[in-house]
Design a binder for these strands. Structure first.
Length: 813
RNA sequence: GCGGAUGUGGUGAAAUUGGUAUACACGCUAGACUUAGGAUCUAGUGCUUCACGGCGUGGAGGUUCGAGUCCUCUCAUCCGCACCA
C-alpha cells in the first residue's frame, strides 16, 4: 500500500483526541517544559505564518514529551479587537457570533495539522470568565495606584475611532489600519509602566543569549533611558506679570549640563501650559496664534515632515547660573510628552538647536573648545566661556555642574525615559469593559469585585461611528458601588494587549480552578517561566514589553510569586514569503493551508515548513520544493517493507560491508545531531537533511537489520516534525516502542577500518589518500608525500601537519 | 542620524574548536520505463580552460602551515527607532 496521508492523519488525530494524549499531568514532582506559541487572533482562517509558528512549537513540545517531560503546550484565542467590529459593520454579523464561529473553524484547522495542544486548557480572551479576572486585576491595580485616569494628549485613529497606545503607532500611523494618527486631548486610563522602566531595562540582561539580540535592543531603545540635569528656568518679573502670576517658570531636562553656559534661547512645545495661557489671553499676535494652533492640530508625521518652525513668545527667563535674560520660543519639534515639554537650547553644541537658531538668527555662544565657527560641535573638549568651569573637560563638567545645581538647590541630576505610560482605554465595543463607575458625588469608583464580570451587552448597534457602548440606551446606567446613587458606567474598553499580557498564567492555572481564581500561584510557580516562547518579531515591543510589565506588576500586587520574567527563551520566527514579498490577501500571493493539507497532508506541510529554512529566517515559499518534501515521505513510507525485526536490533558492526557501515554511521550521525537541534539551535532543516542522507545511505545497501535499525531511529527522530506518518510506521513496525524515551548513540558505528584524508601542499588540496585508521603519523606522511610527489619535485618540505581524521598539509619551499 | 542583523552555486540553504567549501533539497541536462507524464528510476550539474591547470563564500587588507569561520577597513541589502533635548 502506498502512502495515504489523509487516512493516516485522520486515524491518528482521532486517536490522540480520544486518548487525551496531550494533556499535562498534575504531578508537580515531574520535570516540566512549558512550550508556548503565541496565540492567534481568530480572523477566520489560518495562514502560513500560523502553520510555521505552530509547527515549530509542536516539534519542541513533542520532543520533550517523548523525553518524559511533563509538557504544557496550550492554545487559545486572542479574541477581542477591531476586526470583529469591522465584520459587524461590513456583513452585519455580531462580533461575538463572528468570533466564536471563527474559533470553531480554526480549531478544526489546527487539529488537521496534528498539533499536540492541550484541549482542556483552551480559552478565548473574550470569554466572560476571562474578563472577570482581568477586571479584578485592573481594580487592584487602581487601588495600588498602578492604574489611573487622566486627561491628556493622546494618539487618535479616526478610522478605528479609538485611542492608541504609543506602541501601536508605527511611523505615525495606526498599527491596524495604517491611517495617520492625530493628537487629541481626552481622558483615558493609563497603566504606570514607567514605574517599571528601570526594572524592565535592567532585567533585559537576564534574557541575554536567550532572546534574539535584536528584540533586546529594540526594547532597550524603546525604554530609552538617559541621564542628565533637570532644573527650572525662572521667568523674568515682567514675564511673570504678563502671565498673570500663574507661572513661576518651567522645568527643562538636558543630557548636556556641560553646555549650560551656551544656552541662548529656550523652546516650549505647542501644547505647553504657558503657551496655552498666552493663547487664551491673546497675548500673541493673531496670526501667530493661528499658526501655533495649526501645529497643534498636525499629526506627528506632518510635524516631522514640516521642517522646523517656531515663534518668539515675548517672554523671557533667567539663566540660573549667569542670570542672563533668555528669550522663550515655541517650536514645533519640541515634544510635549518628554522632558516636561521644554528644552534649553544650545545651538553651538546641538545640531537641531543649531538649525533652528540659524533659521531665526538667534545668537551663538561656544562653550566647548574644539569645533569650527559656523557649525555645531557635538564632540568632547574643554569648557570655555563657562566661568569657574573653564578648562575642565566636558565629561567631568557634566557631573560637576549637576553637583553645583544640587548644592545651590537649583536643580538635580535625574533620569529620563522615552517610555510613556500605557494608555489602555479604547472607545470600542469588542473589548473587556473597564470596570469603573462615574458617580456625581463619589467621582471615579471601581466596581465591587463580587459584581464582576462587567459583561458586554449583546444588543448593540455597530456602525463604526462613535462608541457603541456609549450609544447603548441603558447599559451604562448603574448605581454607584459606594453611595448607591444613580451613576454611569465607564464605556471605554481595555486594549486587547491587556488580555495577551497574562494569558501565559491562565494556561498554567489548572482548568478546575478557572472558576475560582484568575491565576493560581502554585500552578504558576510550577509551570512558569515559559521555557520556550515562539512568535513573530512584530511583537518585539508591543506584546513582549507589556507582558513583561504585567508580570512584574502582578507580582507586586500579589497575584503571582517572585517571578522576574515570563518568557525564559524566545524564538522569533521569520516571515513566510512568496515571490520575495510577505504573503497577503491584497497582493494575492497567499498559500491556503487547508488546500495544502488537502493535497499533500499535514506531515508534508509541516516537513516543508521546517525544512525550507531555519525557523528564525524568512521562508520563501516554493511549490516544487513542497513536492520534494512529499516525495521524501512517500519514499520513507515505502521503505517499511525493508524492515525485518520489530525492535532495535543488535548488530555486529565489524562484520558489515562498507555500505552497511556507512548507512549506520549516517543514521547515528542524525541521532547525535538531534539533541542539539531540538534543545539548542532549532535548525530543524539540518536534522531533516541528516535524515534524508541517512535514508539515501540505507538505500545503498540491503541488510535487513541495518534497515530495521535505520527506520527505527529515523521515525523516532522525525516524529516531532511529521508525527502522523511516524506514529503509523512506528506502530506497524515497532509497536511504537521507538517513540518512548531516548535512544543511545553507539560510538562503535563511527569507527572505520580506513580513513580518507585530504592531502594539501601549502594549504592547497592536491590529492586524497586512504589510510588504515590505526596508521601512525609517519606512515600517513610518507603516503601523503607519495600522493603529491608531482608538487614536491625540487622543493623542500619544511613542515608537516596532520589533522587527525581530516587532512595532511605539507609546507614546501 | 542611532540601534540590530544579513551577504556562500541558477534557487532554498549546509559547514563543532580555524582543518577536503557548497551536505540536503529544488531547478536544470541527459538517459531508462511509459500511449502519455507535472509520475517513477539512473547519471551529471560552482565558474573557467581543448587540456595541465587556474579562480571561487560582497570587496580590500591582515594574522596563520591553513580563513566562509579570527582581526582591521569598506560596500550593499534588510529590519526597528527616529527632531527624545
Amino acid at each position: 500500500m502506498s502512502y495515504n496521508p489523509k487516512e493516516i492523519e485522520n486515524k491518528w488525530q482521532v486517536k490522540w483526541s480520544e486518548q487525551q494524549a496531550f494533556e499535562p499531568k498534575d504531578d508537580k514532582s515531574l520535570e516540566k517544559k512549558y512550550i508556548l506559541s503565541m496565540f492567534p487572533f481568530p480572523s477566520g482562517r489560518l495562514h502560513m505564518g500560523h502553520v510555521r509558528n505552530y509547527s515549530i512549537g509542536d516539534a519542541m513540545a513533542r520532543y520533550y514529551r517523548k523525553q518524559n517531560y511533563n509538557v504544557l503546550h496550550p492554545i487559545g484565542w486572542d479574541a477581542f479587537g477591531m476586526p470583529a467590529e469591522n465584520a459587524a459593520i461590513k456583513n452585519g454579523r455580531h462580533p461575538k457570533e463572528w468570533t466564536y464561529s471563527n474559533i470553531d473553524y480554526m480549531r478544526k484547522e489546527l487539529k488537521s495539522l496534528g498539533l499536540s495542544f492541550s484541549e482542556t486548557r483552551e480559552f478565548a480572551t473574550c470569554d466572560e470568565l476571562y474578563t472577570k479576572w482581568e477586571q479584578e486585576f485592573i481594580i487592584k491595580m487602581y487601588e495600588e495606584k498602578l492604574l489611573y485616569r487622566e486627561s491628556t494628549t493622546v494618539n487618535w485613529c479616526n478610522e478605528c475611532q479609538t485611542v492608541l497606545a504609543n506602541e501601536q503607532v508605527e511611523e505615525g500611523c495606526c498599527w491596524r489600519c495604517d491611517n495617520e494618527v492625530e493628537l487629541k486631548e481626552m481622558p483615558g486610563y493609563y497603566l504606570d509602566i514607567r514605574k517599571y522602566a528601570d526594572e524592565l531595562l535592567e532585567d533585559l540582561k537576564l534574557l541575554e543569549g536567550k532572546w534574539p539580540s535584536q528584540v533586546l535592543a529594540m526594547q532597550s531603545n524603546w525604554i530609552g533611558k538617559s541621564q542628565g540635569l533637570e532644573f527650572t528656568f525662572k521667568l523674568s518679573d515682567a514675564s511673570k506679570e504678563k502671565l498673570g502670576g500663574k507661572f513661576e517658570g518651567f522645568e527643562v531636562f538636558t543630557t548636556r549640563p556641560d553646555t549650560i553656559y551656551g544656552v541662548t534661547y529656550t523652546a516650549l512645545a505647542p501644547e505647553h501650559p504657558i503657551v496655552k495661557e498666552l493663547i487664551k489671553n491673546e497675548l500673541l499676535d493673531a496670526d501667530v496664534i493661528e499658526k501655533i494652533t495649526a501645529i497643534s492640530n498636525m499629526t506627528e508625521v506632518e510635524r516631522a515632515k514640516a521642517g522646523k518652525e517656531g515663534f518668539e513668545l515675548g517672554i523671557t527667563v533667567i539663566h540660573p547660573l549667569t542670570n542672563e535674560e533668555i528669550p522663550v520660543w515655541v517650536a514645533n519639534f519640541v515634544l510635549a510628552s518628554y522632558g516636561g515639554g521644554a528644552v534649553m537650547s544650545v545651538p553651538t553644541h546641538d545640531e537641531r538647536d543649531f538649525e533652528f537658531a540659524t533659521q531665526y538668527n538667534l545668537p551663538l555662544k561656544y562653550v566647548i573648545d574644539g569645533g569650527e565657527e559656523g557649525k555645531a560641535y557635538t564632540g568632547d573638549g574643554v569648557l570655555i566661556n563657562s566661568d569657574e568651569f573653564n578648562g575642565m573637560k566636558n565629561s567631568e563638567a557634566k557631573s560637576a555642574i549637576i553637583k553645583l545645581f544640587e548644592e545651590k538647590n537649583l536643580g538635580r541630576g535625574t533620569t529620563n525615559y522615552k517610555l510613556r505610560n500605557w494608555g489602555v482605554s479604547r472607545q470600542r465595543y469588542w473589548g473587556a469593559p473597564i470596570p469603573f463607575v462615574h458617580c456625581k458625588s463619589c467621582g471615579l469608583v471601581p466596581e465591587k469585585v463580587e459584581n464582576l464580570p462587567i459583561a458586554l451587552p449583546e444588543d448593540v448597534e455597530i456602525t463604526g461611528e462613535g462608541n457603541p457602548l456609549e450609544k447603548h440606551p441603558t447599559w451604562s446606567n448603574c448605581s454607584c458601588p459606594k453611595c448607591r446613587a444613580e451613576a454611569k458606567r465607564e464605556t471605554d474598553t481595555l486594549d486587547t494587549f491587556v488580555q495577551s499580557s497574562w494569558y501565559q498564567f491562565r494556561y498554567a492555572t489548572h482548568p478546575d480552578k478557572w472558576n475560582s481564581c484568575g491565576i493560581d500561584k502554585e500552578d504558576v510557580n510550577y509551570w512558569l517561566s515559559v521555557d520556550q516562547y515562539i512568535g513573530g518579531i512584530e511583537h518585539a515591543i508591543l506584546h513582549l514589553l507589556y507582558a513583561r510589565f504585567f508580570t512584574k506588576a502582578l507580582r507586586d500586587i500579589g497575584f503571582i510569586d517572585n517571578l522576574k520574567e515570563p518568557f525564559e527563551r524566545l524564538l522569533t520566527q521569520g516571515m513566510v514569503l512568496m515571490d520575495g514579498a510577505k504573503m497577503s490577501k491584497s497582493k494575492g500571493n497567499t498559500v491556503d493551508p487547508d488546500a495544502l493539507i488537502e493535497k499533500y497532508g499535514a506531515d508534508t506541510a509541516r516537513l516543508f515548513t521546517l525544512f525550507a529554512a531555519p525557523p528564525q529566517k524568512e521562508l520563501e515559499w516554493n511549490d516544487s520544493a513542497v513536492e520534494g518534501a512529499f516525495r521524501f515521505l512517500k519514499k520513507l513510507y515505502a521503505r517499511k517493507s525493508k524492515v525485518t525485526t520489530n525492535e532495535l536490533p543488535t548488530i555486529e558492526h565489524s562484520s558489515l560491508s562498507k555500505e552497511e557501515k556507512l548507512a549506520r554511521a549516517k543514521v547515528y550521525e542524525a541521532l547525535q545531531k538531534s539533541v542539539d537541534v531540538y534543545e539548542k539551535t532549532f535548525a530543524f532543516n539540518t536534522l531533516i537533511a541528516s535524515c534524508m542522507e541517512a535514508l539515501n545511505a540505507l538505500d545503498k545497501q540491503d541488510n535487513g537489520l541495518v534497515w530495521s535499525e535505520g527506520m527505527y531511529i529515523i521515525t523516532h527522530l522525525l516524529e516531532p516534525i511529521t508525527p502522523h506518518i511516524c506514529a503509523e510506521l512506528s506502530e506497524e513496525l515497532f509497536s511504537s516502542k521507538n517513540l518512548a524515551g531516548k535512544i543511545e548513540v553507539l560510538d562503535e558505528v563511527f569507527e572505520q577500518d580506513t580513513i580518507t584524508l585530504a592531502v594539501a601542499v601549502n594549504g592547497k588540496r592536491r590529492a586524497e589518500i586512504e589510510v588504515a585508521s590505526s596508521a601512525f603519523k609517519d606512515e600517513i606522511i610518507s603516503q601523503a608525500k607519495e600522493s603529491v610527489a608531482k608538487w614536491l619535485e625540487g622543493k623542500n618540505v619544511v613542515k608537516e601537519i596532520v589533522v587527525p581524521n581530516k587532512m595532511v598539509n605539507l609546507v614546501v619551499k
